[in-house]
């Protein structure tokens, strides 16, 4: 009798911890990077803090960035699988970097403002976004 109850209790503990882990799943860091000039997880942290500084999350949903739940622009999950950027630019690393640095030049009148990113910053961010392709999600 007691042993049965004990097993159920054990299962309950596992269940609870499972719930916690699932809730954490969404904040798991995503180390892999697609850009050639960026390596290692420090870069991923650097990129995520850039995303936070420039406020990308205000308009876009970006998995793994706290508070990045914007609904203004498209969600940025699995970005590498996109065919186009801004509706008409083919999704290549070069185009993405250009787009990040000056969206108003590539697509005048788009709601995405020019935020004066340096090319290094744009590359870091692009690398971060492509990194999601490798994620098993």
């Amino acid at each position: 009798m007691f042993r049965g109850a004990l097993i159920i209790a054990g299962l309950a503990v596992i269940l609870h911890i499972g719930v916690i882990l699932i809730s954490l799943e969404r904040v798991k860091a995503k180390p892999p990077l697609a850009m050639p000039d960026t390596t290692g997880r420090v870069v991923s942290q650097e990129a995520s803090s850039l995303l936070k500084h420039y406020g990308c999350g205000g308009c876009h949903y970006i998995p793994g960035i706290a508070g990045a739940n914007g609904k203004v622009g498209p969600g940025l999950e699995q970005f590498a699988n996109r065919a186009y950027i801004a509706g008409h630019l083919p999704n290549t690393p070069e185009n993405l970097v250009h787009w990040l640095m000056n969206p108003q030049r590539l697509e005048p009148g788009t709601a995405m403002p020019t935020m004066n990113l340096t090319s290094t910053e744009a590359k870091l961010i692009a690398g971060f976004l492509y990194g999601y392709d490798n994620d098993a999600r």
Binding site: G58, C59, G70, K71
Partner: peptide, 19 residues
Amino acid sequence: NIPNTTGHLAAWIVDSQSI
């Protein structure tokens, strides 16, 4: 709550309700 940068400001203006 958010740093005062162009991106954040733009997001705040058009979608303050999400932030």
